[in-house]
Design a protein around this nucleic acid. Structure first.
Lengths: 240, 240
DNA sequence: CGACTTGGGTGACAATGTCACTGAAAGGTC
DNA sequence: GACCTTTCAGTGACATTGTCACCCAAGTCG
């Protein structure tokens, strides 16, 4: 334990005083992989790499970076919070994708209240706006990559609207439990966190989970949910 | 009346057999106005103008044009419909804006169930994808225009999510009544249409309007709503 | 006039959100 | 271990919103 803390301190030192070295990140993204070697080398020059700890804010209402973010490793959760504090997850940005929402705001010059949180430790490449502009102008591959990123987010949001406006809460919860669970049999999440996923209240989640438990689809303990009967959950989830 | 029908026929003939002539449309859009004269003349060559009657579908799940639409005149309502037939208006595209959602779908290669309806008679300029690509590559102004259009839609959708997930229905309805009314004192809309605006059910709208009526903020007759007390509606609308 | 279509009203009930409160579970301190 | 604090979850009462079934009124058209 002590050993681990020392290691962490060393990490931080490295982050503060040294250059973070990762492999050729331009290999990692569809939009940069296909570029000529010359351009990629330039990119590696002008962009810089940042690392964020799990839980750190990547962007938010008060913190709008004027650059494009390439997510090299990790995952970012983008969510929106209402005035009265309720929250809803809009989508997640996975490694290999870029986070266009910040650029969106820059261009539209309108306020919005979405924020991005590092859901895991994150390594990302920050591409300053001038470089972004130049690339978008000169490289077809890159431009299409960016357009596709925008498009994906638009589609994601259409889905969220559909779910929130027309979906049943039990169906949505079953769906989300499965997707959060992935291959695992257990999820580590509080009721409040699940409520924030779906944009509802904790009490609602508690009630629905009670119901799931009675039907023996899940088992609960503090902060954990065991997925006992995934097929049943899947059946419920697809009954929309 | 007969006279009018003849005129309409003539219109259609003109549309079918002649070129529709509108002024220099490139003057109408931020993204094209700033382009060099040479490019604008080329644009006018390759793009073609279409006219749609009020109520016609501009695009939909089964009808995805692979081109960018510039809305020269009129208004398009973009909405989404659930499986059980409920509908919600996502945003409106006004004259001078472009409709990027269709291009979004092309790029993301995913299905979605949004559709665009001409809310008035519409005149639009269709820019084929090759020309779009070339412009996006070569002209900064144009590229920024397109990015800005995407951004605006993203922001619009964030707003819809926020409203649907966290907003009260009476507040949202008051808001929408005012925005639909514009400068006028009266709105021509059925309860069902208002329900489709907000993604709710007709009965809900009926109830809330009854309430508004009791509070003397509006008066109702079949298919029409008179806005009697706009300040009161505005107060309610901004009490979110 | 009478049949038909469309728009709107209503009551009962279901689903979801809100509020106020309770107690249980985990961690830290002495 | 005993005590305290914080976080997490359960619960009942109630408000809001959505669903269903059905009715009636206003226009339309023969």
């Amino acid at each position: 334990m002590l050993h681990r803390e020392v290691a962490n301190d060393a990490d931080i030192q490295f982050r503060l005083y040294g250059e973070i070295v990762i492999g050729d990140w331009t290999d990692r993204f569809q939009g940069t992989r296909a570029l000529p070697r010359r351009v990629r080398d330039q990119l590696i020059q002008v962009a810089h790499v940042i690392q964020l700890k799990k839980g750190q804010q990547v962007f938010g209402p008060d913190n709008i970076p004027d650059s494009l973010l390439f997510l090299y490793d990790g995952r970012i959760r983008v969510s929106q919070t209402s005035e009265n504090g309720r929250e809803i997850v809009l989508y997640r940005v996975d490694a290999g994708e870029s986070c266009v929402l910040t650029t969106a705001c820059m261009l539209a010059e309108e306020a919005y209240n979405a924020e991005g949180i590092a859901e895991t430790d994150v390594t990302a490449v920050v591409l300053p706006k001038p470089a972004f502009d130049r690339l978008a102008a000169e490289e077809d591959e890159f431009r299409n990559f960016v357009f596709a990123a925008y498009s994906r987010r638009l589609i994601d949001l259409l889905r969220v609207v559909d779910d929130v406006a027309f979906g049943r809460i039990d169906v949505r919860l079953a769906e989300r439990l499965l997707s959060l669970g992935g291959d695992h049999k257990e999820i580590s999440a509080t009721h409040q966190q699940l409520a924030s996923e779906l944009g509802t209240a904790r009490e609602v989640i508690s009630r629905v989970l009670q119901d799931f438990q009675k039907r023996e689809m899940i088992a609960q303990s503090r902060g954990r949910i065991a997925l006992l009967d995934k097929p049943a959950l899947a059946a419920l989830a697809s009954s929309d």
